[in-house]
Design a protein around this nucleic acid. Structure first.
Lengths: 338, 338
DNA sequence: GTGAAAGCGCTAACAC
DNA sequence: GTGTTAGCGCTTTCAC
């Protein structure tokens, strides 16, 4: 599969009567080239439309200027916005993004990582699947010298840089908002057990109830998946409780949307009879009726911070692992008005 | 930035007492290797955890197993689903995906393409920005021998493979659905002028009205952008018309959602006083109230077909340019019931 | 400040 | 069916 041959560094060197080494140095702002030569080279390179061959660069220098992103889905607001943030930073620093989608399957995740050719990547940004546990395949990659930065769903056992929203504080604010608005029997439809994100949000919820001396009933805390359908199912379970809650704090907006849809089906008045608050600030919040109160997550910034951090790790050896926590913001809408 | 050195083809060859050529051939299912040797090599490679260096492979063979995707956004249902489809096929055929996001800016688009190192990519999948016109930078890439397949928003002037939904037929069905449901003054809030997609949907709309002898009033056809806010704005314009329409066919669901929100603000009863139908089948259709009728687009299949087509172009020289049109499907919901 | 040359890890033409 | 070897286009010592 030969493609048309582009101009190479040799062509530039030849037409200038200099060596390829000089061209290579000039192209990369290496400081042992005279100002004059550099300009000459740059001009000729652009005239000849010279683009360095990235494979050759990568082979010679052991760098690729590619960063990988591995995550469960891209088809939701949060993830696609994070990627957009990553892309923004990557583009500005000359990095490309290679996308790996796990479909939230641990098997797929491990298969991708086991088969990953690390020679392709300078670093990896990762959000693990909701079924992932030990994540030893990530550890393997890190041990082999490829930096990894985790975001959002992060594995507890692995020492690496991590970027996340302030889950416990956000959850605390969400629950307290419900309390301030007069709700007293507050339930929580949560995510899978064993996730930092899940536990932090559950803890924030518990803390708020404790602070205001409200009962924490374990039957009001339901753990299931992260999706809309899980939200619907969880509501039906809540409605079976002996004592019914009068408000729902959902671990994310998708589950909150599922909850609203289920409540509507049951003809339960949202707000008046049952307050609902989510987490994320998906655009659907202001489309659904009643509009959904939520904690806005800084999705775009999660992306930019993660990418910046990863690039630090790539460019500076022994850059220390960092944990960045970004604040969320309460957005009150109709679903929490009595 | 040296990273830990992985095992190379030499290591595998040495520990087996064969040549690197044999290992190389065995690894790639080249047929002039004995069954026995191949198995021996494969076993040793996996034992040594050998992963081929993609830069070296790319440099030697002029292939990268990377395909690029360039598109306006990834933060909406349609695009993220297309990418998921692309990813699916790419993964199964051993290709990686490199993502480029233009933020719907022609400038960004051309800048990305001008700076693109083609040595990085075996082929490109593209959906142009809503402001792109001549797209000569795509032509340049094609001329240099890199295959490009366009999807959804496709440039008219360029000869290349294209994949799209059946826009005119879908629009025809949408309009006819409104007619069947008793609407008589049907308006169309459309996208930017000059797009195949826009024109095809507008034509389908016109054809349906003509067939049923309904008036086509130019003031009922509004061209603007593709986003929700444009949908809202367009509705306010429609409501200024001397003779008001009784139904709206929106070029996509995002605009239809904007329209619904605007109508709600104006206390106009959706369905009864004003029918609304969209195009895409975004999940928001069944979340919004009333639920939005629409033409379901085969987004995932658009992705898989595009990727398959591109891989054909990559692997078979002189594979002829192809235009694939995938059918949509009417999904009737509440917003078109009187 | 610049050039010569080795070598990054692999593929493919050629020889046997 | 397998080995030898010349590159692929670039970076990077090491001379000068």
């Amino acid at each position: 599969m030969m493609r048309h041959q582009n101009t190479t560094i040799k062509d530039v060197a030849r037409s200038l009567g200099v060596s390829v080494a000089t061209v290579s140095r000039a192209m990369r702002d290496s400081y042992d080239v005279s100002q004059e030569t550099r300009e000459k080279v740059l001009r000729m390179a652009s005239k000849l439309n010279y683009k360095p061959n990235v494979n050759a660069q990568g082979l010679a220098s052991n760098q690729t200027y590619n960063i990988g992103i591995i995550l469960p889905f891209i088809t939701n607001y949060y993830f696609s916005t994070v990627i957009t943030g990553i892309q923004e930073v990557a583009w500005s620093k000359g990095y490309n993004i290679i996308l790996y989608v796990t479909d939230d399957s641990e098997e797929r995740e491990s298969s991708i990582l086991e088969n990953l050719s690390l020679s392709r990547l300078d670093g990896l940004l990762a959000c693990i699947s909701s079924h992932s546990r030990s994540c030893e395949y990530f550890q393997k990659i890190i041990d082999q010298g490829t930096p990894v930065v985790f975001f959002d769903r992060i594995p507890a056992m692995i020492k690496a840089s991590k970027v996340m929203q302030d889950d416990s504080n956000g959850a605390f604010e969400a629950a307290e908002h419900l309390i301030h608005n007069g709700y007293k029997r507050i339930s929580h439809i949560s995510g899978p057990i064993g996730f930092a994100l899940t536990e932090n949000r559950a803890n924030g919820y518990r803390d708020a109830l404790k602070k205001h001396n409200l009962p924490i009933r374990e039957e009001w805390i339901i753990h299931s998946g992260f999706s809309q359908i899980h939200g619907e199912q969880d509501v039906f379970k809540l409605l079976q409780c002996e004592q019914k809650p009068d408000a729902i704090f959902a671990v994310n907006d998708r589950k909150a949307v599922g909850a609203i849809l289920a409540l509507k089906k049951m003809k339960i008045k949202i707000g008046k009879e049952m307050g609902v608050i989510g987490f994320t600030n998906d655009p659907v919040c202001s489309i659904i009726s009643p509009q959904l109160s939520t904690i806005a997550e800084p999705a775009f910034e999660i992306g930019t911070k993660s990418a910046e951090l990863l690039i630090q790790h790539i460019t500076k050896k022994n850059f220390p692992a960092n944990e960045i926590v970004l604040p969320g913001k309460l957005i009150a809408r109709e679903s929490t008005v009595r």
